[in-house]
Every structure is written in structure tokens, then in C-alpha cells.
């Protein structure tokens, strides 16, 4: 059987340079985390995998077929996408924003199932109490949760999340990542771009390490969180310490301040 979502030798050219070069990967259900420094190409890879951008070379395939061959309406039933930057042109309430996630499923009027799904999504992201507030009046963290709820309401087997923990406090970060983990365990494919290595190690089933547009390595967190590998990716020395059976990743400070 073809894998759910795969990239074969994908390269992407924009703005006079290669943002991605020769990336190949096969994604199956589970919680995947994409790591790499800023500018490594994480967001670009997510947009290519979502079908929004077309690879300059190579091909992204969804269930074995080129992703560009799907009409947007069909694609929206298969994958949801949480972008890093979000805007809203009109004063919708949080619930209305979440309800937009149901759009791909609706033909005409709202169905009772839609309402159930919206309520469920709001509850899962701890945003139920925000439902009737105007979205534009919410704080950054609150907006992130409402947008996550929208992605959940879309109810797709594949979820692509670009930095879903932005603006969240530590507790909310944990909640969001454990939700992502649970969704992965329930048989969905969740791919999130993250910055926090320790959190990634804590929740992800598999890690993808990206550097300067190339996929450097992928595998279990145990194999990936090696100081040498991380130093190669981020250009900073790291220490990995085992603490009560879990791995914590810390930068090794050879000098105080910026190096």
C-alpha cells in the first residue's frame, strides 16, 4: 500500500535560491515532528506537503497519487493545515472561526454533526469558554487554540501544524502536544514543525531534522537526539542528559552570552 504522504526528491526554488533540495520522506500515521533552525525550510516543506505549493523538482504524493492531481475540495477532506501567521478580515466570533473548519464537509446548511464536531474541537483545545468572544479580541495564545480547534474540526486524517505552540504558555504547550500525540496514536498522521527539542523528544514518535533545505536525518527521538547530530543541525554544541528515563536537550554554554 502506498504511504499516506510522501515526498520524493523534492526541491523548491524561490526568491533566487533553493529553499529545499532533494528531500525524500514517507509519512505514515503517528506524531511526527520537524526540527531545524529558522530558515531550514520547515514551513516550505509543510506547504509543499499540503499541496499549496508545487515542488520545483520531484513530487509530493498523497496516497500514491501526485498531490497536485487532487482538487482543493477533495484535498481539504484529507489534510488540514495550521499556518504560523494567521489573519482575519472580518469580526467573526471564535466559534465562527472554528466552524469554518467544517466547510469541506458541508454541502448546504449546517448539520447537527457539524455542531458536535465544533464543540468537541473547542473542548479538546481548551477553548470552549472563548467560543462567543470576537476572535480579534483574543490574545495570541487564545487565537492559537481557536485555530487549532478549527484544524481539528476539519476532521482530516492528516494534520500539518506549523509551530502550533507559538504564543502558548508551558502548560498549554504540553496540552497541545499531548493532544497531537494522542491524535497520532489514534491513527492520524500529525506533522508539526517545532523549535523546542526537549518537548519534541517528549512527545514525538519520529523526528525529522532539516538543515539548509536538506533532510539531514530522520528516526526515533532516541537516535536523533545525539549531541553531534544536533550540533551539525543547529551549529551550537548541545548536551543530552538522561533524567528519570527521559532525554533532555540543553545547549552547552562554552562561553557566556552570544558566541
Amino acid at each position: 500500500m502506498a504511504s499516506w504522504l510522501e515526498a520524493e526528491e523534492v526541491s523548491f526554488w524561490r526568491g533566487g535560491r533553493w529553499l529545499l533540495q532533494g528531500v525524500s520522506l514517507k509519512l505514515s500515521p503517528g506524531f511526527w515532528v520537524l526540527l531545524g533552525p529558522n530558515g531550514a525550510g520547515k514551513s516550505s516543506l509543510l506547504r509543499l506537503l499540503s499541496g499549496e505549493w508545487r515542488a520545483s523538482r520531484g513530487e509530493v504524493r498523497l496516497e500514491g497519487r501526485p498531490i497536485q492531481s487532487y482538487p482543493p475540495a477533495v484535498l481539504a477532506l484529507k489534510r488540514a493545515f495550521l499556518p504560523q501567521q494567521r489573519s482575519l478580515a472580518f469580526p467573526y466570533t471564535a466559534r465562527e472561526v472554528v466552524a469554518l473548519g467544517r466547510l469541506p464537509h458541508q454541502k448546504g446548511r449546517e448539520h447537527p454533526l457539524d455542531r458536535e464536531r465544533i464543540a468537541w474541537a473547542l473542548a479538546e483545545t481548551g477553548a470552549s469558554h472563548l467560543a462567543d468572544r470576537p476572535y480579534l479580541a483574543l490574545s495570541g495564545g487564545e487565537r492559537t487554540r481557536v485555530d487549532l480547534a478549527r484544524i481539528l474540526a476539519q476532521d482530516t486524517p492528516i494534520l500539518l501544524l506549523d509551530e502550533p505552540t507559538n504564543h502558548l504558555d508551558p502548560r498549554q504547550q504540553l496540552e497541545v502536544l499531548s493532544l497531537a500525540q494522542r491524535l497520532g496514536q489514534e491513527g492520524r498522521l500529525v506533522l508539526a514543525a517545532l523549535h523546542d527539542l526537549s518537548l519534541a523528544a517528549l512527545f514525538a514518535q519520529r523526528l525529522l531534522l532539516l538543515k539548509e533545505g536538506r533532510l539531514l536525518a530522520q528516526g526515533e527521538p532516541e537516535e536523533m537526539l545525539e549531541p553531534a547530530l544536533l550540533e551539525e543541525v543547529y551549529g551550537v554544541p548541545f548536551e543530552v542528559v538522561a533524567h528519570r528515563g527521559r532525554r533532555l536537550v540543553l545547549p552547552r554554554l562554552s562561553r557566556p552570552g552570544w558566541s
Binding site: 506547504r47 499540503s50 499549496e52 482538487p71 482543493p72 475540495a73 477533495v74 484535498l75 481539504a76 477532506l77 489534510r79 488540514a80 493545515f81 499556518p83 494567521r86 489573519s87 482575519l88 478580515a89 472580518f90 467573526y92 465562527e96 472561526v97 469554518l100 473548519g101 466547510l103 469541506p104 458541508q106 476539519q154
Partner: peptide
């Protein structure tokens, strides 16, 4: 109406929600 609602989130978002923008 529905497609315009999706567009409120932005053109990329509307695309991800299945709208051929």
C-alpha cells in the same frame, strides 16, 4: 457566502479549507 467566509482567514487558509481561490 461559504467560500467568502473561508477567504476571511486568508487566501492560503481558504485553499487549505478546500476553496479553489
Amino acid at each position: 457566502g461559504r467560500a467568502l467566509n473561508a477567504l476571511t482567514l486568508g487566501e492560503e487558509e481558504a485553499y487549505h479549507l478546500g476553496v479553489a481561490v
